[in-house]
């Protein structure tokens, strides 16, 4: 298979457009920088197979083979922790996609220029508030006794709920607050993509008598498919990152069952005494899973949407 692709490539070389050496020159800086600052330090990944001690360095730290990975998989709660991570992360991805895209489509329909600009600027703001601060705000809002949400519930004749202490509610709260925080900032990419749509298409549709909704479904959305494919595929690479800062600031022992994720687990392990190797092993595991999912996503995007991301 490798041979097959190599042969036509060689043939093509002879007939490349003039000045193709320029292409190599253009990609060179990115390749050099990536090599120096990403690939060379990647030797640090070897720590995952060691019992790394900072003062011994990678060359002298003892090798332990797959012990660090074994520890993760033999840990009694690991299935639950990995499952929680995947669940939260996938749901965040889906909800995030819907909310950012939905917002981009709707704000795009706002004709009033000042309104559009100000709304767009304001929705970026939550992105900048750290979870330490938001954690405090949400804990207050959701307080079972005097929190605003429960006061509303009580006014409606409902029983108050300890949202952050309930395995039933914890994940929905995490998803909702995350979507709120990021939809505005995330929509920038779609707004940029919307710019590229040919207005002639809308004009033609209008002449054909297509309504707003039809235009959105038949013109706007299809034009965004490449961007959606790119965003979804790349996000798959981070599917084992379910959002440490957020969970860490909201969770508690009552919701370990539904809310404990890989990163909070690694954090608690770290508290016992800087285990670099374990952290690196987890990072490596996450990257490998991410890589596999990106490749799967690439195939799916190609098969389903007929779009090649790269």
């Amino acid at each position: 298979m490798g041979m097959n692709t190599a042969v036509p490539a060689k043939k093509m070389k002879l007939s490349r457009t003039k000045g193709s050496w320029g292409l190599y020159l253009m990609i060179l800086p990115a390749v050099v920088l990536t090599t120096i600052f990403v690939y060379v330090p990647m030797s640090g990944l070897l720590m995952a197979f060691q019992d790394y001690k900072p003062y011994l360095g990678i060359s002298k730290s003892p090798w332990v083979g797959l012990d660090q990975f074994k520890f993760l998989f033999e840990y009694p709660d690991s299935i639950q922790v990995i499952w929680n991570t995947l669940k939260i992360s996938f749901l965040k991805l889906v909800i995030g996609m819907i909310s950012t895209l939905g917002f981009a489509l709707l704000i795009n329909e706002v004709k009033h220029k000042f309104l559009r600009t100000s709304v767009q600027t304001f929705v970026f703001l939550p992105h900048f508030i750290s979870w330490v601060v938001l954690g405090g705000i949400f804990i207050q809002l959701l307080n079972p006794e005097y929190g605003l949400v429960n006061q509303l519930l009580q006014a409606l004749g409902q029983e108050p709920v300890f949202f952050l202490g309930s395995n039933h509610w914890f994940v929905p709260i995490v998803l909702l607050t995350d979507a709120w925080k990021e939809f505005g900032y995330g929509s920038i990419i779609y707004l940029a993509a919307l710019v590229g749509i040919n207005p002639a298409l809308y004009e033609a549709a209008q002449i054909d008598g297509a309504g707003k909704l039809k235009q959105m479904l038949n013109i706007t959305l299809p034009s965004l498919i490449p961007t959606i494919c790119v965003m979804l595929t790349i996000s798959l690479g981070g599917v084992l990152n379910a959002g440490f800062d957020q969970i860490f600031n909201l969770y508690n022992p009552l919701v370990y069952e539904s809310g404990d994720i890989i990163d909070t687990f690694v954090y608690r392990i770290g508290l016992i005494g800087g285990n670099y190797s374990f952290g690196t092993a987890i990072g490596l595991f996450k990257s490998v899973v991410g890589l596999i999912l990106i490749l799967v996503g690439y195939r799916i995007a190609y098969k389903v949407a007929g779009y090649k991301i790269f």
Partner: peptide
Amino acid sequence: TVMLTIGVLGCSN
């Protein structure tokens, strides 16, 4: 690339 770079950092101490 990982193999290549082992040499570079391997001798830090």
